[in-house]
Simulated scan of single mutants.
Amino acid sequence: MSKVKAVRCEGCGVPVQTESPEQKGYIPEKALEREVILCQRCFRIRHYGDLGAVEQDPEAYLRVLDEIAATDSLVVLVVDLFDFAGSWIPGFSRRIGKNPVLLVANKVDLFPKTANWKRLRDWVSASAREMGVHPVDTLLCSSAKGLKIPDVMQAMEHYREGRDIYIVGTTNVGKSTLINRLLREAGGTQDEMITTSPYPGTTLDTIRIPLEDGKEIIDTPGIVRKDRISEWVDPKELKIVVPNAVLRPKVYQLNDGQTLFFGGLARLDYVQGTRQPFVTYMSNRLYVHRTKLAQADEIWQKHRGELLAPPKDPAAIPPLTKHVITLSGKEKEDIVIAGLGWVACGKEKARVELWVPEGIQVSTRAAII
């Protein structure tokens, strides 16, 4: 039995223990004397940037979410505006009961300045309604840059009506960063209270933050979605895939018979259609390579893991599977790859074959930019 039972890590919420360094929540006994209790994993993330992964139980995290249905609370659903489809929680509407939902779309800072915020907000609201969720309000913000955080604070206080607040979302949408930013804006602390990192699944258990009226803000573990590419990338390569700066769209005028490689993670073959633009909205650090379709297989086999990277270890990624996409030509459309980004296509009829790791979500939508 661990010598410590009641104490939880203030960074990730997991119960701390002093006996098994290889298990979650380990903390040296000496460290228990510190004012701020951090498990060894959180300590290493904060001070050394160590992004080591831990075993996660997606079903356990969903059970935590299901418990919200039995409460009378305000649910703040945080989604990633850059990866909306990949950051939506499956079956969300049936898991939170009759509790009101405040929808917060994070990472608006990644979008070009030319993006229409009202259009983005309306699109997020409409997409949520299509998923069966009718939020009391929809807000855009950037927890990393502090954009529109006062608006989020005001909305949370207005809609909670004296209730607890649950902050929920999938891994890596920025929930914990948002809470840290809210605490700083409220004047509580300038330090990072909840551990954050680029690696999915940093928060391992619920973290409760008391409010002045006796209620709480509850940060929940991120829901794991294995159908997005970012969940499969090695932690050391994740910074190449997940954007952290304003997107610089790359425009490719393609004729049919040409291919785009997105690192070694995905491939788009333009099979049939007239010359038209394909604009990539992905991390600025991700290498995009254009070539002829006739040479694509040879280049893929020869250069994946080297020129075409990440991943450096292709064996760590599921084998590729083909998605045939027919562009209607009626409107501009986006081809969305969960956890990677999207390709905005021109307004011409076309046939595209998209190759992504097996199980990764692929979808199309009317262009949002």
Rank of each mutant, 00 (worst) to 15 (best):
I167W: 02
V168N: 00
T170S: 14
T170E: 11
T171W: 00
N172L: 06
V173W: 01
V173Y: 01
G174F: 00
G174N: 06
K175E: 02
S176Y: 11
S176F: 10
T177C: 12
L178T: 08
N180Q: 14
L182R: 01
L182T: 02
E185W: 03
A186Y: 08
G187K: 09
G188N: 01
G188D: 01
Q190E: 15
D191Y: 11
M193T: 12
I194F: 12
I194Q: 05
T195L: 08
S197F: 03
P198M: 04
P198L: 11
P200E: 02
P200W: 01
G201P: 07
T202Q: 02
T203N: 05
T203G: 05
T203F: 00
L204T: 05
L204Q: 13
L204G: 01
L204V: 04
D205G: 08
T206S: 09
I207K: 02
R208G: 02
I209Q: 12
L211N: 07
E212F: 04
G214K: 02
G214I: 03
G214W: 02
K215C: 11
I217R: 00
D219M: 04
T220W: 07
T220H: 10
P221A: 00
P221Y: 00
I223C: 10
V224N: 05
K226C: 06
D227P: 07
D227W: 09
R228D: 06
R228A: 08
R228P: 06
I229A: 03
I229Q: 02
S230D: 14
E231H: 14
W232R: 10
V233P: 03
V233A: 05
V233R: 01
D234R: 07
P235K: 11
K236I: 11
K236P: 01
K236H: 12
E237L: 10
K239S: 12
K239N: 07
K239V: 06
V241E: 05
V242L: 12
V242F: 02
V242P: 02
V242Q: 13
P243G: 03
N244L: 06
A245T: 15
V246Y: 03
L247D: 10
R248I: 10
P249T: 11
P249M: 06
K250Q: 15
V251R: 14
V251D: 13
V251K: 14
V251N: 13
Q253A: 08
